[in-house]
């Protein structure tokens, strides 16, 4: 194990997969010599050349659309859309092309691409550069949605995503790029659709992903001082979603708090809550709580942004409402 940043871990995954499979290439705005807006692709141009690390014009549609075409034609593109907020620009290529081709073509076409995008607030990037838009991605059948919270998970999951024959949306959190974590040495992958119990507990289940995992873990430590042992589950992949791990945990604890940074209304937490209510109702000893952002665009001013982002205190408050 070695201490690495989330960004380094992603970079390593890209490098390893590009070495492993020549069909893997990177395409995105400023991913070449610039190393990506967040530096994630630093050094890859030098290692693999301009044929495999392609700077794209500001053309999200063409980036994503050509990646779909190349993927159907047999390559494994890893396009990068700098901010997830820009996905709207190329949404047709994701929603109507990549997601549906395998099905529409009766299973004959494969679209093995991994669309990397950076999301998340907390850096003062305001309304068009800070969103968490996973919910509507999860609403599109045919794509997988991955949201890693740690460096180790980011690396292992990205490698799995690149090897996956389906289009995978890989949502990175921009405020986590500099966060360090233990990353296993050598080759490893983490399967998509497998949640990870990041902390065991018996009194309440907190489901949190991406940046919110870290807030949930911090909240759990505080709660432990008061005798409440929270189990913290990181689904890591939202589609496919590991229901089994969550349900088992709820069977144990009887209580569920879902935490995500995206706005609560229409958020993926609503889907999880509905899922649990439908399939796991009898295990609940309390109503399900969601801790999520208010239904508003993300503000710029630091104090407003801080108020917008769900934090430890809100998680603790939600948990305590059970007791």
């Amino acid at each position: 194990m070695a201490e690495k940043t989330y960004s380094q871990a992603i970079n390593e995954a890209l490098e390893e997969e590009m070495r492993r499979d020549e069909k893997v290439y990177i395409l995105g705005e400023d991913v070449g010599a610039f190393g990506g807006c967040f530096g994630v692709t630093t050094g890859l141009l030098e290692k693999f050349g301009a044929e495999r690390v392609l700077d794209a014009p500001i053309s999200e549609t063409a980036i994503m659309g050509s990646a779909v075409g190349a993927a159907v034609a047999g390559l494994r593109p890893v396009p990068e859309i700098m901010f997830v907020d820009f996905v709207g620009v190329c949404l047709d290529e994701l929603l109507n092309q990549a997601a549906k081709m395998h099905y529409m073509f009766g299973g004959k076409a494969k679209v093995p691409l991994t669309l990397r995008m950076a999301g998340g607030a907390g850096v003062g990037a305001a309304a068009q550069h800070s969103q968490s838009l996973e919910a509507f991605m999860c609403h599109i059948p045919g794509i997988k949605v991955v949201m890693p919270a740690t460096a180790a998970d980011a690396k292992g999951l990205l490698k799995s995503a690149i090897r996956d024959d389906n289009p995978v949306v890989f949502l990175e959190h921009k405020a986590l790029y500099g966060a360090s974590g233990e990353v296993p040495e050598g080759e490893y992958t983490i399967p998509l659709g497998k949640a990870d119990i990041k902390r065991e507990g018996k009194d309440v289940t907190i489901l949190a992903y991406s940046m919110m995992l870290h807030k949930a873990l911090a909240a759990a430590e505080t709660l432990a001082l008061e005798g409440i042992e929270a189990e913290v589950i990181d689904p890591r992949t939202l589609v496919p979603f590991d229901k089994e791990t969550l349900y088992k945990s709820i069977e144990k604890t009887g209580r569920l708090v879902i935490v995500h940074e995206a706005v609560k209304q229409g958020g993926f937490g609503g889907e999880i809550a509905a899922m649990v209510a439908e399939e796991c109702f009898d295990s609940l000893d309390a109503s399900i709580k969601r801790v999520a952002a208010p239904f508003t665009p993300i503000p710029f001013a630091s104090n407003l942004e801080a108020a917008y982002i769900p934090d430890e205190a809100k998680i603790i408050e939600a948990v305590k409402s059970f007791f």
């Binding site: 069909k23 290439y25 044929e51 549609t61 063409a62 994503m64 659309g65 050509s66 990646a67 779909v68 075409g69 190349a70 993927a71 159907v72 034609a73 047999g74 390559l75 593109p77 047709d92 290529e93 109507n96 092309q97």
Partner: peptide, 19 residues
């Protein structure tokens, strides 16, 4: 989708060149 084939063909052309 009207116009959707344009980037797809571009990508296929890229694949042909790449490979």
């Amino acid at each position: 989708i009207v116009g959707a084939g344009l980037p797809l063909a571009t990508g296929a052309g890229f694949a042909a060149k790449y490979m």
